[in-house]
């Protein structure tokens, strides 16, 4: 499914200089697998999600990223979306003046068009929206509101999962989807994600806390430090991290550097 090889990426800082954040990251996720990336703040987790989804200002200086053999790095964000990349944002963006229904319709039809499928008519769209929003406990009232404007933390994250369900991606990145949520909201979001798990869909779950992984069970857990993956293991690695904290991994990393 997705193959990341020796990825190096820079971010443009405010004074126009390039700062390297991702420093030789390798990752392979097979079809149907759920991988978690854990790590403390500032190690490049969110940068990785932006690099994979193609945000401007994040420049890849070395390495490659392939989705089913297609070079993602050559594509712009909308082309990646059409191929099946989906990013659930850590901070979903407010779109002033655009109503949820209008937004979802525009997104679904833009993707269908890119994928060479017929655009959905009003009725087809209504059915799709009704069905998916009901599953996630999203009210009609929320669908009439402006995208993410005045949404609570839980509503914003449920909205991300709703879009994920409607756009039928192949590779989903969840960037700290649990941040700022209470336990009930986490359960709703995790339920939504679990329903979407399938043999031909992969997930990369980026998180700070082990708690989310109680509800979205990963196949493989990675620890990220200083722009690369420093340890990989099974679900038990998350528990170990929760117990001991990140300090040990960071220390090991530093020693390695010194040597």
């Amino acid at each position: 499914m997705i193959n990341i090889n020796n990825l190096h990426a820079c971010v443009e800082t405010a004074d126009g200089e390039a700062k390297e954040i991702i420093k030789g990251l390798n990752l392979e996720i097979k079809s149907g697998e759920v991988h978690a990336i854990m790590g403390p703040n500032g190690v490049g987790k969110s940068t990785l999600s932006y690099v994979l989804s193609g945000r401007d200002g994040y420049n890849v200086t070395d390495g490659s990223v392939e989705l089913d053999g297609v070079d993602l790095l050559k594509l712009n964000p909308e082309e990646r979306a059409a191929l099946g990349v989906f990013l659930a944002f850590q901070y979903p963006v407010e779109i002033p003046g655009v109503n949820m229904n209008v937004f979802l319709k525009a997104a679904v039809n833009a993707l269908r068009k890119q994928r060479g499928e017929n655009e959905l008519d009003a009725l087809g769209m209504l059915k799709l929206i009704k069905g998916k929003s009901k599953e996630l406990g999203i009210s009609d009232d929320m669908m009439r509101r402006t995208v993410n404007v005045g949404f609570s933390g839980g509503e914003k994250k449920r909205n991300e999962i709703l879009q994920m369900a409607m756009l039928e991606p192949k590779f989903c990145i969840l960037d700290e989807t649990d941040s700022g949520l209470d336990i009930d909201a986490i359960k709703v979001v995790a339920d939504g994600v679990n329903k979407l798990r399938s043999p031909d869909r992969s997930f990369l779950v980026i998180t700070h806390y082990q708690r989310l992984l109680d509800y979205i069970k990963p196949d493989i857990v990675h620890v990220m430090a200083d722009g690369k993956i420093v340890k990989t293991g099974g679900p038990e690695l998350a528990l170990e991290l929760e117990e001991k904290g990140y300090a040990e991994f960071l220390k090991a990393e530093e020693q390695e550097k010194a040597a």
Binding site: S53, F103, A107, A110, L111
Partner: peptide
Amino acid sequence: PLFYLRSRGL
């Protein structure tokens, strides 16, 4: 918002 919409396929 521009990137958000593009990441959704527009």
